[in-house]
Write a protein that binds this DNA or RNA. Structure first.
Length: 643
RNA sequence: GCCAGCAUAGCUCAGUUGGCCAGAGCAGCUGAUUUGUAAUCAGCCGGUCGGGGGUUCGAAUCCCUCUGCUGGCUCCA
């Protein structure tokens, strides 16, 4: 008798070994049609494999991440099969599933492949999927495995096999394609109903740039055609929200070849928006006990020798600039912390002063490889909303709480509702990789974990992801169309206080080492503004948007009244403009809608007589007629706290 | 940095296998129009076809090279 325990704790008993698929059929035919894989005693396996002893079983469908993974991994095999049939003799690297789909790294030998070949490959994949080919699992010896790929002439697979032990090697066979693979796979290719190859790119074999570059083809598949349509619509939506596009359209920022790549130029409207964000954050930080400091854009090479950054990053930075006479070397500052350490050292500190919090919107310059640059999210010159907290080890927890308060407050103000947190701790296997005493690490890691727990943060813990100088907490937001962005960060640092020999005098009249905490709620203004643009699709919150109101006089006759309205709004600190072109109202409305201006005030004869405005809201349409003061107060209310 | 693709007016794009002085829409300017909830009409201005070199009788179109952009790879204090 074999007892299968299902997730709801019910137990089903069978006289002999059974597959997950058969169990599913036993429950319902409909369920069986949707089972992609199975989780047996916590391990994901093919739904078609026999379960020979008592086990817990979870049937995995498209709704489970592991189900999707099996689907996409199987799709990679399907693509490989199609490609092998179309381009005989190609060699295969690895073909895993990824967060959104799958890819396969392929050595196309003499074929030259571009995205123009996608349709052909997709069509072949569709044909093969329709054949409902099963994924046949075979356990093979290392020798058999090697012989197969020697015969096939695929050195990549041979290299992979070389790293495996005899007895743990399996092949999966689908139609004409056999692959080295540990699985699991979906029962048959018929589950794959919609296929889209999305991207093509070069990728080094095993990520090593000294080795051969293979062609990586990305794709995604779905069990329903509708799901693909929805996915493509999401991509369309993302395209429309692309901050590079909206940045141009809304005249927020630009780049110039003459200035240099990765060096953003903020246009008046973008600069205004950014300043407003900075002003807001400064206000929040002032309330939280931060003190502003200002440091220069360059720093002596010695500063970075002290900080240790010279040794670690010196060779891959912008080269130092030199004074003409003395030949003294300066780096463009790649971060603000060394400067802030020197500010801390300006005078001795007592434990009574701590924590000290130095804040600066510090512009930094980092050499990023040219291929990495991307709009405002990846640039060579950017401004961090930086601050460094110098505190005693037992203040870490309070300080984390304080920073989290700030981050939560500003994320809420900017309408990021879905915030995830990643806590990065030491790799327990390799304590030697980290600087600082074990007690200190222990204390900081415990403090961070406690904070997360007490505040019920939506946090995951990653071991081994900490920096060598301390543990950290990263903030990841999900935007309006479901994409994740890593923004803010809080990092504990035991290294710099050591290197800069920072001290404070404790209650015991002895010198002690402070702990330093780096933190940036936005990360960088550039990246944050980019994310904000994409999050709100260019429809900024009213308090941030460059132009809040546009006044549209029906004709030149009402110019004077428009001016009256303008002045009144100005008294309320509402940013407005008058569209005084001799255009029809419909045209003015259209243009204002395109510029995403939140409020349009239409004024004509009726309004002038009654001292009112006709209000039209962006994307929503006519709101009716309001007294000017009533409207102004309403707006003032909506703008509220943030200025 | 590497692989692949792309680069035509301020913006979005046309430009057949190399062949008349390189086109359109939008924006801008000028004029007419004085307008009631998503585009009034007309005229004008605007391009060394990313830069440089080459092939050719002739290059936006073909080749080389540089620069930049896009998608990946690698990296990220």
């Amino acid at each position: 008798m074999i007892n299968i325990t299902l997730p709801d704790s019910s137990i089903k008993s069978y006289p002999k070994a059974i597959t997950a698929l058969e169990v599913a059929k036993d429950i319902s035919e409909g369920l069986a049609r949707n089972v992609l894989a199975a989780k047996v005693d916590g391990r994901v396996i093919d739904a078609t494999r026999l379960i020979a002893s008592d086990a817990s079983l979870q049937l995995l469908t498209w709704n489970d991440n592991e189900g999707k993974a099996a689907m996409w991994h199987s799709s990679a095999h399907l693509m490989a099969e199609a490609i092998e049939q179309l381009y005989s003799g190609v060699k295969f690297g690895i073909g895993p599933n990824i967060e959104n789909g799958f890819y396969y790294d392929i050595d196309f030998t003499d074929y030259s492949i571009s995205d123009k070949d996608f349709e052909k490959i997709e069509n072949r994949m569709v044909e093969l999927a329709k054949e409902k080919q099963t994924f046949i699992r075979k356990e093979v010896s290392k020798k058999e495995a090697e012989e197969y790929f020697i015969k096939k002439g695929d050195e990549y697979k041979l290299e992979l096999i070389n790293d495996l032990d005899n007895g743990e090697i399996t092949f999966y066979e689908t139609g004409t394609f056999t692959d080295l693979c540990r699985g699991p796979h979906i029962p048959n290719t018929g589950f794959i109903k919609a296929i889209k190859l999305t991207k093509i790119a070069g990728a080094y074999w095993r990520g090593d740039e000294s080795r051969k570059q293979l062609t990586r083809i990305y794709g995604i598949t779905f069990p329903k055609k509708k799901a693909l349509t929805e996915y493509l619509e999401m991509l369309e939506e993302a395209k429309k929200r692309d901050h590079r596009l909206l940045g141009k359209e809304l005249e927020l920022f630009t780049f110039s070849q003459n200035v240099g790549q990765g060096l953003p130029l903020w246009l008046p409207k973008g600069a205004e928006l950014r300043e407003r964000l900075e002003r807001y954050l400064k206000k929040v930080q002032k309330n939280a006990g931060y003190e502003p400091v200002i440091t220069p854009h360059i720093g002596s090479v010695n500063l970075y020798k002290t900080s240790g950054h010279y040794e670690k990053y010196g060779s891959e930075s912008f080269k130092p600039i030199k004074t003409p006479v003395e030949g003294e070397e300066f780096f463009l500052k790649p971060m603000n912390c060394p400067h802030h350490c020197e500010i801390y050292k300006f005078k001795p500190h007592s434990y009574k002063e701590l924590p000290i919090r130095y804040a600066e919107f510090g512009t930094v310059y980092r050499y990023e490889q040219s291929g990495e640059l991307h709009g405002l999210t990846r640039v060579r010159g950017f401004t961090q909303d930086d601050a460094h907290i110098f505190c005693t080890p037992d203040q870490i927890k309070d300080e984390f709480n304080g920073v989290i308060n700030i981050i939560k407050e500003i994320f809420t103000a900017l309408d990021f509702k879905d915030v995830m947190i990643q806590i990065s701790l030491r790799d327990p296997q390799h304590p030697e990789k980290y600087i600082g005493s074990n007690e200190n690490w222990e204390r900081a890691e415990t403090a961070i974990k406690e904070v997360a727990q007490e505040r019920k943060l939506n946090a995951t813990i990653e071991y081994g992801e900490a920096a060598f100088y301390g543990p950290k907490m990263d903030f990841i937001v999900r935007d309006a169309i479901g994409r994740k962005w890593q923004l803010g960060t809080i990092q504990v640092d035991y290294n710099l206080p050591e290197r800069f020999n920072l001290t404070y005098i404790g209650a015991d009249n002895d010198k002690h080492r402070p702990v330093m905490i780096h933190r940036a709620p936005f990360g960088s203004m550039e990246r944050f503004v980019a994310v904000l643009i994409e999050h709100c699709g260019g429809n900024f919150p009213l308090w941030l948007t460059p132009e809040q109101v546009i006044i549209l006089p029906i004709s030149e006759k009402y110019q004077k009244y428009a001016k009256t309205v303008f002045n009144l709004l100005k008294n309320y600190d509402i940013r407005s403009e008058i569209d005084s072109r001799s255009e029809k109202t419909g045209r003015k409305i259209r243009d204002a809608e395109m510029k995403k201006i939140p409020y349009m005030l239409i004024v004509g004869e009726k309004e002038e007589k009654e001292n009112t405005v006709s209000v039209r809201k962006h994307k929503e349409g006519n709101m009716g007629t309001f007294n000017i003061e009533t409207f102004a107060k309403h707006i003032e209310n909506e703008i509220e706290v943030h200025i």
